[in-house]
Nucleic acid binder design. Structure first.
Lengths: 358, 358
DNA sequence: CTCAAAAAGTAAAACGATTTATCGCTGTCG
DNA sequence: CGACAGCGATAAATCGTTTTACTTTTTGAG
């Protein structure tokens, strides 16, 4: 072990080194670093020179021990592989950075136990606030824990409203109702709803939003639902079984898939069975993705306003952190867009608010 | 501001509280917490009871200030929206956790300036080691900075080899050569290479690997390359222009797209022009994605062994961190798989090692 | 039973910043 | 002329843990 020096790294300058070099006290250096004004210009300049000469950086660990100032916000996300959360995290990071905060991200990997651990650790590290995308919903253990620790937080996606924290969600219910408008309006009376995660609040809201509107439009409509939390292979088999059991005239004329993942599973199975889309079955998916415009047919999907949600979440959190928040929590419900493409069938007369995309 | 108590959170127990309650000294509590054996069983038990009763957790900030122990590893990733890096991060997190470390993730968003900032911050937080996916290559500023700060690190993807750090990369060159085998073997003699990021080492390696093998197989082959770092819209336009300029017999008979993003762009343009795949043009993409099996035709792609890479990276890093590492850096080159689907044309006789997927 | 060595325990000194309490100085006002 | 306010600066206290250097207790051999 040649390089294994037991001494510290290329010795890092401390605030006292800077103070000595600038001929002032450590307290003065601290003031300069933190931008406090009560320092003579000449001294401030010498401090800055010393800082530059020594490559000094505040040690955030030492600083965090005494100081109350925390300019970090934490994000606890259920899944970093999903494009939706990937985009969300990117948006959060950008917004946080613009406000002068840094963000640390960790993934609960859809486990409440891991979520609990991460929240505790965020608290350990004295984050100013936490963006939580709960594994389940706002009534899960994560929210209770945040409250017990008296942490500042904002709840995003998979939530509706909370009595303490602000929430930011896509308007899943309205978007699903719009899908119902589209499909029922096009004459579909037998529709399959396919969802990949039962536990998440967002999925339930999408399902309920669709069913409520569809029944309101035509109570005679038949809605099959296939929702499970099984592994990918089991789900694949379940879809296969479903279409085998519902062949011929028993086959639904439309499918509404409740997540990007679901859309992929359904699409894959329909392709295998050589079912023509949209002639034999129309398909609408929740959650848009780049690739959906390149499939054949391209896929009509509900696009969530992920950038807006990220920005709103950080804004709400920082408003609380910086103390200018209203007393009562506010729940933001961001509207989705529906991107009409080929898989939903020929163009019907659509409300103007829906943009034609793809 | 009703709840705005200037006092600290629900007062957190300190090590001294625990010591008092257990009737021992703080040093003893510290030993118990750190699993050091020289504590009488009876005392250890009373300490553990006190810890449980008071909900005590080690304060990592205070602990980090004095102690040398760091059980955190940092990851600096260029882009969290890409499915490849999403999967990589998930794999890294899992591997780190299994080894008893925690991971903090941040995104350089393809900017060397942000990368520099993040590396400096990782050092500030005294991480045990850093997993760096460089913005450019192993010769970028990030690697120099890591060395200057004398940090432990492992370089992943977009690198070849380094004189100090271990590296882990997919074998881009071999995989691209296999694509050349496939396309040249199928008789294609005019091929377009499309790549979306010129600066990244991985892209260059893919390009060079393909060109070298193709020329070796048949020096008369024509290879057009379209590689740029422009925005999505500009690239889209560039592809359009290319195919307009290369219509009729000037049109290539195959496209090799160097990234998932590229594949999407090319596919989209070919669809718009109603070019038949694979009859008019064969398409092979680097980097597999779930959706590629659902397009029509499904897309032949090179799949990177992302889980293996993640595991290898963490293993290499921790070997160094924990001091059992060899003196010389080792560069791992993980083999890719080619997933044959419809877009490459009818099945040729393929080497056995290529799995048929889809 | 004695005594040295090993084990267990502890008070106090770090760690590197921020914050507090105080101090000297300059000018102003009564 | 003395007191006082205000500004800048600083020494020292502080944050919660780990580590050091020591003291006390236990153990085991003779």
């Amino acid at each position: 072990m040649p390089q294994d020096d037991p001494w510290k790294n290329p010795k890092r300058a401390t605030i006292h080194d800077v103070a000595r070099k600038a001929g002032v006290s450590a307290a003065t250096v601290s003031k300069v670093m933190r931008g406090i004004a009560t320092v003579k210009a000449a001294n401030a300049e010498r401090v800055r020179e010393a800082v530059a000469a020594l490559d000094y950086r505040i040690d955030p660990i030492a600083s965090g021990l005494r100081g109350e100032n925390r300019r970090i916000i934490g994000a606890v996300i259920p899944d970093l592989e999903s494009p939706f959360f990937g985009a969300l995290v990117t948006g959060l990071e950008r917004a946080a950075e613009e406000a002068g905060y840094h963000m640390i991200v960790a993934s609960s990997r859809e486990s409440e136990a891991r979520e609990a651990d991460l929240i505790a650790r965020m608290n350990d590290w004295r984050v100013a606030g936490t963006v939580l995308v709960p594994v389940r919903s706002e009534r899960g253990s994560g929210t209770r824990q945040l409250k017990a620790l008296d942490m500042q937080a904002v709840l995003v996606d998979r939530v509706s409203a909370d009595d303490r924290y602000d929430t930011v969600t896509a308007d899943n219910s309205a978007a699903s109702a719009a899908v119902a408008d589209l499909l029922i309006g096009a004459g579909h009376r037998h529709i399959l709803l396919h969802g990949a995660t039962r536990t998440s609040k967002a999925m339930r809201t999408r399902l309920e939003g669709f069913v409520a509107r569809a029944n309101a439009l035509d109570p005679s409509v038949t809605i099959d639902t296939q929702v499970s939390d099984d592994t990918r292979d089991v789900q694949r088999r379940a879809i296969k079984d479903y279409f085998e059991a519902h062949a011929g005239s028993a086959r639904p004329s439309a499918v509404f898939s409740l997540s990007q993942h679901s859309t992929l599973l359904v699409l894959s199975e329909l392709r295998r069975r050589a079912v023509a889309i949209p002639d034999d079955i129309a398909l609408v998916g929740f959650d848009d993705a780049d690739w959906m415009q390149t499939t054949w047919p391209s896929i009509t999907a509900v696009a969530q306003p992920v950038a807006v949600m990220a920005e709103a979440a950080v804004a709400a959190l920082l408003a609380r952190v910086e103390g200018e928040a209203t007393a009562f929590p506010v729940s933001r419900l961001e509207p989705c867009r529906m991107i009409l493409r080929e898989s939903a069938g020929p163009d019907y007369e659509m409300p103007r608010r829906f943009r034609r995309g793809g």
